[in-house]
Design a protein around this nucleic acid. Structure first.
Lengths: 256, 256
DNA sequence: AAAGAATTTCGTACGCCGTACGGAACAAAT
DNA sequence: ATTTGTTCCGTACGGCGTACGAAATTCTTT
C-alpha cells in the first residue's frame, strides 16, 4: 500500500480551543469515552480569571486552580494543553466580557472610546498586560474587538495600513497608562508606603546620594508631576492629555 | 541612659547600590574585613546584561550568573540583596551605555530623537521591557536620561506637567513598537515558522473555525498590514507613522 | 603575638513552580 | 465480554529564589 507521508497537522492546537464555542454550526457532541468531565474549560478559565483578578497573575498556578475544584493538578492538562495556553484562553475570555458599545458619530469621540474602553478593561484586569507578552493571539473575542476597533477608525480617510497603526497607537497608549498605574499600585504594595511616604522616607538618602549630580528640570517637573498625580482624585483621567494629542495628530492627518 | 527608639532606616537599600559610583565626593574605601571580594558589582551586573542580551531575561538566574565567575550561587547575595535588585541595576547600567547626543534645534527632530533613542535601545536590549514592569526606578543613568528627555521638550511652551506627560507618551510609544517587534520575533522562534508560514499552516483551520463569524475590515486591513510589515525591509521604521501623528499633535498643541 | 569581630564564600535544604510519566477507574465501541 | 480511548491523579524530576549556618579569611583590638 502506498503511504501518505503523515502530513502532520501543523495547525496550532490552541486555535480550536479558543474558538470552541462558535466553531462552525456542525458541532459534534459525539459521546466520548471515559469518565464524564467534572468541570468545563470555561469554568476553569473563569476560575483562573478570578484568581488573577484577586491575587495577580503569579497566583495563577495549575495547582491553585485545580484545588478550587478539588481536582488534582495534573487533571487540568486534560482540559488545556499547558499554562501558556490557559493564559491565552483567559485573555480571550475576559475580553469577551466587556461589551462593545455602538460607535458615536463624532470621530474624536470614536477614537476616545477605543482608548478608554481598553484602559478601563486593563484597570479591571491588570494581568492582561503581562499576558500580552505571550502572544497577540487571535481568539474570537479578540477578533471581535479588533474588528470593532477598525470600525472606529473606518471612514476617516486613512489607508488600510494606517487604520491598523492608528488602532495600535490608541490601544498601546491606553496600555501604557494602565501599566504606569499598575506599577504605582504595586510599588505601594511592595514597600508598604504611599508614594509620598516613600519620598519622605528616602529624602535624606536621595540628597546625599545625588550630591554632585543635578537635575534642574527633573526636580521642577518631577515635583510638579508628583503633586498633580497625587492631587488628581481621578487618576483614570491621566490619559486625557496624551490621548488628546494623539487624536489631534490623527485627525489633522486626515484633514479635519 | 536614655534610649533613642532605634529609628530604623526606612530608606531603600537599593538606592545606595544604584548610586554607588557617584555618591558624594567623600568616598570611604575604608578597608573592610573578611576575604577580598573576587569580583565587583559592576562585573556581575555586566555579566547579567550579557546573559539577558544573549538568552533573554529568563536565563538570568542567580546560579547561571554565579557560574560565569566560578562562584557559588549564594555568593551573589553578598553583592546584591536579591534578584529583583539585580534587574534594576542591570536596567540602570545598560541605560548608561547609550550616550545622550546633543539635541537638535528643530523641535520635531528633538522629539523624534527621544523616541528613536528609546526604540533603538529597546531593540538592542529587549529584556528592558520586562524589567520595566518591576519598578520605574531612579538610578543615576535613568535620572540622566529623564533629564535629557525633559530638555528635549523644554522651551516648547508646555507646562511642567505636560512636559512629563509628553515624554511619557513618546517613550511609551517607542516601547510599544519595540514590544510588538519582540513578540513577533518570539513567536517565530517558538513556533519555528515565520509569520507567513504560520498563516499558511493554519489557513484551513482558521477558515473552518471562523465560519459563521466574519471580519470584513479585519480581513482587509489585516492582510494589508501583514503584507506591509513583511515587505518592509526595515521594520524599525514601523514607528514612523505613529510618531509623526503624536508629534503633530504635540506641536499643534503648543501652536507651531 | 593572640584573641576577637566582622565579612565573604558557599553547601545544603526548603518550598515553590510547570509538567512528563504511568497506572487506575471509567464508559463507549466492538 | 473484551477492547479501546479518556479522564483522573499520585509521584517525581528538574529548575527557580533564597534562608540558614558553617567555614574561611581579614582587619581590629588587646
Amino acid at each position: 500500500m502506498s503511504h501518505v507521508p503523515e502530513q502532520r497537522d501543523q495547525s496550532d492546537p490552541s486555535l480550536r480551543l479558543l474558538w470552541r464555542h462558535r466553531t462552525g454550526a456542525r458541532e459534534e457532541p459525539k459521546a466520548k469515552r471515559g469518565p464524564k468531565q467534572k468541570v468545563s474549560v470555561d469554568e476553569i478559565v473563569d476560575a483562573a480569571i478570578d484568581l488573577a483578578d484577586a491575587e495577580g497573575l503569579a497566583a495563577v498556578t495549575m495547582r491553585a486552580i485545580a484545588q478550587r475544584f478539588g481536582l488534582g493538578a495534573m487533571t487540568l492538562y486534560s482540559y488545556v494543553p499547558n499554562r501558556d495556553a490557559l493564559l491565552v484562553l483567559m485573555a480571550d475570555q475576559v475580553t469577551g466580557r466587556t461589551e462593545l458599545p455602538d460607535l458615536p458619530e463624532d470621530p474624536r469621540k470614536r477614537l476616545e472610546l477605543v482608548a478608554n474602553l481598553q484602559h478601563d478593561e486593563l484597570r479591571a484586569h491588570p494581568w492582561l498586560l503581562e499576558v500580552q507578552d505571550v502572544r497577540p493571539w487571535l481568539g474570537p473575542n479578540m477578533s471581535d474587538r479588533y474588528e470593532w476597533q477598525l470600525r472606529a477608525v473606518d471612514g476617516l480617510g486613512l489607508t488600510d495600513l494606517e487604520m491598523d497603526q492608528t488602532v495600535a497607537v490608541l490601544v498601546g497608549f491606553a496600555g501604557n497608562i494602565a501599566r504606569s498605574e499598575l506599577m504605582k499600585r504595586r510599588a505601594e504594595q511592595v514597600t508598604g508606603m504611599t508614594e509620598s511616604q516613600w519620598w519622605a522616607a528616602n529624602y535624606e538618602t536621595l540628597n546625599e546620594v545625588m550630591e554632585g549630580s543635578d537635575y534642574p528640570l527633573a526636580a521642577r517637573v518631577g515635583t510638579a508631576a508628583g503633586e498633580a498625580y497625587q492631587a488628581a482624585t481621578d487618576p483614570a483621567r491621566e490619559l486625557d492629555y496624551g490621548l488628546a494629542r494623539i487624536i489631534d495628530g490623527v485627525l489633522a492627518h486626515v484633514g479635519r
